[in-house]
Amino acid sequence: MTTFVWDYRREYEVERADILDAVDTVFRSGQLILGASVQGFEREYADHHGVPHCVSCDNGTNALVLALRALGVGHGDEVVTVPNTAAPTIIAIDQVGATPVFVDVREDDYLMDTAKVAEVITERTRCLLPVHLYGQCVNMAPLKDLATRHGIPVLEDCAQAHGAHHHGEQAGTMGRAAAFSFYPTKVLGAYGDGGAVITSDDEVNARLRRLRYYGMETRYYVEETPGYNSRLDDVHAEILRRKLTRLPGYLNSRKEIADRYAAALGDTDLVLPRTAEGNDHVYYLYVVRHPLRDEILRRMQEHDVSLNISYRWPIHIMKGFAHLGYGPGDFPVTEALADQIFSLPMYASLDEDTQNRVIDALRTVLESL
């Protein structure tokens, strides 16, 4: 039987009764859209972060789109971010008519090199968008200083960082707004798509609520355009409410899995994940490096272990983003990583026997190179 980098089925068997009860609760409520379950989840997710506002939506990409719009980012504006991220980060910037401006990442932890941000800020810069990647946070102090100095907001991309902390501050609480994804693979995942934006800004909250509902405040009356139909379904909201109570357990399990990988693979020539200073890593992904990455992945398939690469192609060399004007060589760290990184199985319900199978196969492959 093939081992995959992610599998929800064991978790579902453990939580099945509660998940099905959540579905039944919504179906019996008489409210399927923006009902009590959505309202309850938004309140509880905001409380979890210690902020006053959470506005849920239909997916993480639209969480970024709505947040950018609510922060006033639009046509002709520039947003500073990184090319080592999932394409939806950049797609969201493109959808609001803005231009992504890239800085490279750091070689040791793969996160935004904040020392490079100041040199790319221009009079058109309207937002700094750090991506908290693989389960840990970008170094936020320099970004917040730049944001204050230039009068521009910070929007945190927290799709991969539920529950992560940076110098004691929780991911999502260090900027003017933060976007989350609840795609099923996430640390806190639904059983389908979902997203949310959290903020302490009352004006941003009000705009988010209008924008996700056609630009309306009163039913059938549009206050602003373009508006969106971007709502989290009550079924997913109720499931997320239940799973939010189990988030500490998910985080503990991921850290235990990461510790086992580190103990079992620390004597190999793999480059294992490094936790940046001040960070509490939640290991959304367990990303390792090796110069013979592709050969390793091929041989692991022979052991019925299917691994993943996040991300094989840097954003700036993709054909779909050629209009941005970047090319090979512009961001050497990102490009070097793209040739070497790959992810080992990482999910809270990964059992020790399956993990040992992956470790044994990987050690065998590494020894045969």
Rank of each mutant, 00 (worst) to 15 (best):
M1W: 10
W6A: 08
R10E: 08
E15L: 03
I19K: 04
I19T: 08
I19W: 15
D24C: 06
D24Q: 14
T25P: 03
V26T: 06
R28F: 04
S29P: 10
G30F: 05
L32H: 15
I33P: 02
R43A: 12
R43C: 03
E44H: 12
Y45S: 01
A46F: 09
A46Q: 11
D47S: 15
C54I: 00
V55C: 11
N59T: 09
N62G: 02
A67L: 03
R69Y: 00
A70W: 07
L71F: 08
G76H: 08
T81S: 12
P83E: 06
T85Q: 07
A86Q: 12
A87E: 03
T89C: 13
I91S: 14
I91R: 14
A92V: 08
I93D: 01
Q95S: 11
T99Q: 02
V103C: 13
V105T: 12
D108L: 10
L111C: 03
A115Y: 02
A115M: 04
R124L: 10
C127S: 06
P130Y: 13
P130W: 06
V131N: 04
Y134P: 00
G135N: 13
P142L: 09
K144D: 01
K144T: 13
D145F: 14
H150Q: 06
L155T: 10
C158T: 01
A159S: 15
A159K: 04
A161C: 15
A164N: 05
H165I: 10
Q170K: 15
T173I: 06
R176M: 13
A179I: 10
F182C: 09
P184C: 02
T185C: 03
G189S: 00
G189E: 09
G195K: 00
A196I: 05
V197Y: 14
V197H: 13
T199V: 11
R207N: 08
L211I: 10
R212S: 11
R212N: 05
Y213L: 11
Y221A: 14
Y221I: 09
V222C: 11
E223R: 03
N229T: 12
D234I: 00
E238G: 01
L240F: 04
R242F: 11
R246Y: 05
R246C: 01
P248M: 09
G249K: 05
Y250M: 07
S253H: 14
E256V: 10
Y261Q: 04
Y261I: 01
A263V: 00
A263E: 13
L265N: 09
D269G: 08
D269L: 10
L270A: 06
V271Y: 03
P273K: 13
E277Q: 13
V288S: 11
V288E: 11
R289K: 14
E295C: 02
E295F: 00
I296G: 07
M300D: 06
M300S: 08
D304P: 06
V305G: 04
R312T: 08
F321R: 05
F321S: 05
L324T: 06
L324F: 11
P328E: 04
P328L: 07
D330A: 14
D330R: 06
V333Q: 10
T334E: 03
I341H: 02
S343F: 00
L344N: 01
D351L: 03
Q355K: 09
Q355P: 03
N356E: 13
R357D: 11
V358S: 04
I359T: 15
L362I: 02
T364D: 15
E367L: 02
